[in-house]
Amino acid sequence: MTRKEWPLWEVFIRGQRGLSHRHVGSLHAADAEMAVKNARDVYTRRNEGVSIWVVEAAKITASDPADKEAMYDPAESKVYRHPTFFDIPDEIKAM
């Protein structure tokens, strides 16, 4: 039989209710259901989570770091998107 390696899965864990899932690492599993179980055993041994997502690594579409300038630099000139851009008089308390 030709050897076939189990696919790689990326694991995302919600640390507690109210927080979003965060990437914690990866692991191998034959399918998604097994990946969830393995993630439970590998990545939540110290009460790290209340919910697990797994995504097959090969199925993730990522941006190309070579496009970094075109992708992210234009945002740098839009400083008005940040609240600190605006000076509000001290007399106006909460805004």
């Binding site: 189990w6 692991l27 191998h28 599993a29 179980k37 393995n38 055993d41 590998v42 041994r45």
Partner: peptide, 11 residues
């Protein structure tokens, strides 16, 4: 047989 299983069995 595989690392993931090693960890699961230990649990």
């Amino acid at each position: 047989p595989v690392l993931e299983e090693d960890i699961a069995l230990a649990n």
